[in-house]
């Protein structure tokens, strides 16, 4: 088993945190091997933000740090969807933030189109946890990692005052 995961969006959408929490949860709470890399623009907000993960059940299969054909993707913005859709392969499971994505290319993907940012604002009072809403959705639909593992990682990663709202946001899709 070998899975490539692409997480992309604009700077400020919490893409790196999302990718880090997912990667860490895979490393610590599954028996899978993982390598990953990050790309971010020099500007903190607005530029490209991207995390690539290569996950495998055998160590030698976790053989690269870049996505060549993503099996799973979260894309949080139209700009990055346009830029990276060629990296997402047919048959992939793709989670798109409807709040920021207006046009979905005609591809043989299994698309989940949900307004993660709007949900975050409406339900949790801040767009900053849209990333966790999306992560919860991914975990629910793919069973890649146990949700408890992700929550554990959120607790050890996110600043104390933010743990609760992040976990609640993460649970949004899991509890539906």
């Amino acid at each position: 088993m070998r899975i490539e995961v692409l997480i992309a969006g604009r700077g400020g959408q919490g893409i790196l945190l999302l990718g880090h929490i997912l990667g860490r949860a895979v490393a610590k709470y599954t028996n899978l091997y993982i390598l990953g890399s990050e790309i971010y623009a020099a500007e903190t907000r607005g530029g490209d933000s991207r995390v690539d993960l290569v996950i495998a059940d055998r160590e030698e299969e976790a053989d690269f740090i870049k996505v060549m054909g993503a099996d799973i993707a979260i894309v949080m913005h139209q700009l990055q969807l346009d830029a990276y859709s060629h990296l997402i392969k047919d048959g992939a499971v793709v989670f798109l933030d409807r709040s920021n994505v207006t046009s979905v290319p005609q591809r043989k993907w299994r698309v989940f189109l949900e307004p993660y940012t709007d949900i975050a604002e409406r339900e949790f009072g801040t767009p900053r946890v849209a990333n966790m809403v999306a992560l919860g959705h991914l975990v629910r639909q793919t069973s890649l990692v146990p949700p408890e593992g992700v929550e554990e990682v959120i607790r050890e990663t996110v600043p104390k005052d933010w743990v609760d709202v992040n976990i609640r946001a993460f649970r949004y899709f899991l509890s539906r």
Binding site: H20, G23, V26, A27, K28, L32, Y33, I34, L35, G36, S37, E38, A62, I65
Partner: peptide, 10 residues
């Protein structure tokens, strides 16, 4: 520099 910033299970 690539390895420096590559994440992995360790």
């Amino acid at each position: 520099a690539t390895i420096a910033h590559t994440y992995g299970r360790v």
